[in-house]
């Protein structure tokens, strides 16, 4: 049989996504450093929002302080830039008073886990419907490169000249233990998976926590023998993670120190906080 008989492989039509409808164009170009993964996450988030089919006014984006918390400045949603680490608490107030809004919190590893550690775990505990994106670059970028709660042991930063000695947090395990009903890990290297994970997180009713590994080439890469953003993405995100599906066929020794990537915990049974609160209000009013 000649190869001509086979149907020609259909060329996938290339229509780039139109980000401009979701952006405050006058604020661009953004302030993030060359190679910073935050821009990749922002783009994936906009594509996920488009796929879910949300209107711009249906979304409220809340952030704290830090590089990651600049995100709401560039998007044309309802946005709120709040106190360091307190974004989940502000978001709780917004969600309780406007249960129809889709609340998205963008926060960094230092913002969510150090300064805002309590706010983060108590938001997870309540299981209130919001999506918390933890941009985990293992460093405080905005203040000059101090080590954060997710900096791996032995990494060099400006405040750990002999290597960080504190064991890092496992953000996903902590969120799961605190009571979040959707917990996932993604990376800025695996962009298509990131988009799918963010879509699933937004669609989930309950607290969704997505830890997104990204890169800070300026303060983390340079000091840890990774001279470019691409090297960081290759070493930390591509070689340092393994997907949940791949991990099913691997022994713990084969996985080694690699982090799992994908949806790690998805619970649709637990009641959501706003629903419980509405029921409580009805009961108290004797309806």
């Amino acid at each position: 049989m000649s190869t001509d008989a086979k149907p020609a492989k259909k060329q996938k039509l290339s229509v780039p996504f139109d980000y401009s409808k979701y952006l405050r164009k006058d604020k661009l170009p953004h302030i993030w450093c060359p190679g910073c993964g935050h821009g990749i996450i922002l783009k994936a988030l906009l594509r996920a929002v488009d796929k879910v089919g949300l209107e711009k006014d249906d979304i409220c984006m809340v952030s704290g302080i830090g590089c990651s918390s600049r995100t709401p400045g560039y998007v044309d949603f309802n946005t709120l830039h709040t106190l360091h680490g307190r974004a989940p608490s502000f978001a709780t107030g917004i969600k309780l008073t406007n249960p129809e809004l889709n609340v998205i919190v963008t926060t960094g590893d230092g913002d969510a886990l150090a300064i805002g550690g309590n706010h983060f775990i108590h938001t997870c505990r309540r299981n209130i419907d919001m999506t918390i994106l933890v941009y985990s670059n293992a460093i405080y970028g905005m203040t000059g490169g101090q080590f954060s709660p997710t900096t791996p042991i032995g990494s060099f930063t400006h405040t750990s000249s002999y290597g960080a000695m504190e064991p890092p947090f496992d953000t996903c395990e902590m969120a799961k233990a605190a009571g979040a009903t959707f917990v996932a890990r993604a990376t800025s290297y695996h962009v298509q998976d990131l988009e799918k994970t963010l879509k699933a997180a937004i669609e989930h009713k309950g607290t969704s926590v997505v830890e997104i590994l990204d890169e800070c080439p300026v303060y983390f890469g340079r000091l840890n023998k990774m001279r470019s953003a691409s090297q960081m993405m290759e070493k930390i995100e591509k070689e340092g993670t393994v997907s949940v599906k791949q991990a099913e066929n691997l022994s713990p020794e084969e996985i080694g120190g690699r982090l799992l990537r994908g949806i790690l915990h998805h619970d649709t049974e637990t009641a959501e906080y706003c629903d419980q609160y509405a029921a409580l209000t009805e009961r108290a009013q004797g309806k």
């Binding site: 821009g39 990749i40 962009v191």
Partner: peptide, 19 residues
């Protein structure tokens, strides 16, 4: 090959591939 990986991974909204 129009795979668009450059567009997807560009952090700066700087590159797009049109058919």
């Amino acid at each position: 090959t129009r795979c668009q990986l450059c567009d997807l991974r560009c952090p700066d909204f700087a590159i797009q591939v049109f058919d």
